[in-house]
């Protein structure tokens, strides 16, 4: 039953992107096509699970004074593994995500979960936490990708469906290029978080009314 609670936290109440606003650099930078978003989300999820498990297993061995440095080295190790794997097996993805794969090292989500959860909980719970937070991050990325790709390029599933072209929804010439440019990243995230805040306050109000 704990899994349900952790999943709920990862997706909604403690969603790393929409509620905690962590790791925004990658969220803004790479969410231009569904392929990018899914690839980045999966990479971060794998790294989160691995680093959470190892840090949790070593939590009694690592002296607390140097724990942050130790965590960063562990995370950097896993990031390097994922980076090399992507370059070997999915070179197109590695190309389009570019420097943002190695930059997962300094993604606050991974270090944040290590410090806030894995360093205090058992191995299994930490693995589940990594998975749930990773899913929350991926969902947020996919939402951003779908909106930006649709408005900016007029397609859905770019890089994945229809031989990499994506399914065209808005005819060529109409989409606003700005949405896949930096400006669009800021604007879309602003609106997505506003929508998220609206939904969570509505849900809270409903619960309070029911309690009455």
């Amino acid at each position: 039953m704990n899994f349900k609670k952790q999943l709920h936290e990862g997706l909604l109440t403690k969603n790393p992107v929409l509620a905690q606003l962590l790791g925004l650099c990658s969220v803004l930078a790479i969410t231009t096509s569904l392929f990018n978003g899914l690839g980045m989300g999966l990479s971060v999820t794998i790294i989160l699970i691995c680093s959470n498990v190892l840090i949790s297993a070593l939590r009694k061995v690592i002296p607390s004074q140097i724990r942050i440095a130790a965590y960063i080295v562990i995370i950097a190790g896993f990031v390097t593994v994922v980076d090399l794997m992507l370059q070997a097996f999915l070179p197109e993805l590695a190309e389009s995500l570019g420097v943002f794969i190695p930059l997962i090292v300094v993604n606050c989500i991974v270090l944040g979960r290590a410090e806030a959860f894995a360093s205090k909980n058992g191995v299994l719970a930490s693995a589940v936490d990594g998975l749930c937070q990773g899913i929350g991050y991926t969902v947020a990325l996919v939402i951003m990708c779908v909106i930006r790709e649709l408005l900016g390029a007029g397609t859905f599933g770019g890089g994945l469906l229809n031989g990499g072209e994506g399914i065209r929804i808005i005819p060529e010439g109409y989409p606003a290029m700005q949405m896949v440019m930096p400006v669009g990243g800021f604007l879309t995230l602003g609106f997505v978080i506003a929508g998220f805040q609206y939904l969570t306050t509505r849900m809270r109000d409903k619960k309070m009314e029911e309690a009455k």
Partner: peptide, 19 residues
């Protein structure tokens, strides 16, 4: 608007600066 308070409006302002 209430839903935009805090980070959302800040991000939108950043978007305008990026523009």
């Amino acid at each position: 608007p209430e839903s935009f308070r805090g980070y959302p409006i800040t991000l939108i302002a950043a978007g305008l600066l990026a523009m």
